[in-house]
């Protein structure tokens, strides 16, 4: 028998495959992590502040305190993810040492490098990265990302950017599918993505890794809409624990994600959830406060 191999692409991408059809929830305390697990989250994202608070409090947002991440890992048995700043490979090394299940190289935190992203191939722990379009997604995959999430505009409760990004990625994939081989060279140049990955997407009609949607999802109907638009699953950040009844809303979003194409189920689970998070319209945000524009 051969020596067991950890950290292979198949093993890294495989965990994302197992999360499909599920909801990953932002949590800032072990108590919230417990609520998320009990409500049917497939994984939790351990954070010190949800994006809505990062947005309102301002300042530099960094990796969470290891004590907090440890406490959340100890509390739940589902996978625990945590965020590192874009380009901050040492924060990523720390998260790997803390034994998190996935590292999110995230634009929600303040970037640590405005030129380079992390070389994700050099890690045993898999990475998820944000993208607003196909070229950005393929650049992250080229750097070793094992899962992509469309960015949306985190911490707003406004799903319009998430819609824009998933539609953009889908439409760019569809365009590649209809191209001839000679056109794909130019497409790769225009997407600023490696030709081999562009060719793979053109041939298979999908990204080589799982694609979740994130940023502004606040209701069961939001989650179901993202699934109908082709997402493999959803991240819900501020939308749950900034709402009036997190337990009920979390469970409702989980059910709506499974029955995303059944409006009667979505209607049922949407009843009596109390206040949704107070939203911010993305159009009212000045450009420097738009997180989706971080990362390139």
């Amino acid at each position: 028998m051969t020596v067991p191999e950890t950290g292979s692409s198949r093993v890294k991408r495989g965990l994302a495959e197992m999360l499909k059809g599920g909801v990953i929830m932002d949590v800032v305390t072990p108590e919230q992590a417990r609520i998320a697990e009990d409500a049917g989250a497939v994984a939790v994202m351990a954070l010190e502040r949800v994006p809505a608070d990062i947005r309102s409090q301002g300042g530099v947002a960094r990796m969470s305190d290891p004590d907090l991440i440890d406490a959340i890992i100890a509390e739940v048995s589902i996978p625990v993810m945590a965020k590192a700043r874009i380009g901050h490979f040492v924060e990523a090394q720390v998260l790997q040492a803390l034994d998190v299940d996935y590292i999110d190289e995230s634009e929600v935190l303040s970037p640590a490098d405005y030129v380079n992203h992390i070389d994700k191939w050099s890690f045993n722990t898999p990475f998820v990265c944000g993208a607003t379009n196909l070229g950005e997604a393929l650049r992250r995959i080229n750097e070793g990302a094992a899962m992509i999430r469309s960015k949306g505009e985190a911490g707003t409760g406004d799903v319009s950017e998430a819609t824009k990004h998933i539609r953009k990625i889908s439409s760019e994939i569809n365009q590649l599918k209809s191209m001839t081989r000679d056109e794909l060279y130019v497409a790769a140049k225009e997407l600023q993505a490696p030709y081999e990955l562009v060719l793979e997407v053109a041939e298979t009609g999908k990204l080589p890794v799982v694609l979740f949607v994130a940023g502004g999802v606040a209701t069961p109907a939001d989650a179901a809409m993202m699934m109908q638009l082709g997402a493999d699953g959803v991240f819900v950040g501020s939308g749950i624990f900034k709402s009036g009844n997190p337990e009920a809303r979390a469970a409702a979003v989980v059910k709506a994600t499974t029955f995303y194409d059944d409006p009667s189920v979505i209607a049922d689970v949407s009843r009596g959830l109390g206040e949704a998070m107070v939203g911010i319209n993305v159009a009212d945000l000045a450009a420097p406060h738009r997180l989706a524009e971080r990362g390139w």
Binding site: P4, T6, V11, G14, I73, D99, D101
Partner: peptide, 28 residues
Amino acid sequence: FGSQNQSFETELEVPALGATPVRAVFIR
């Protein structure tokens, strides 16, 4: 097996399926 860092793939003997081993991926 523990966290994702301990997830792995390996060759596995499965006599019921014949002599060729199975490439098996274990994910948490």
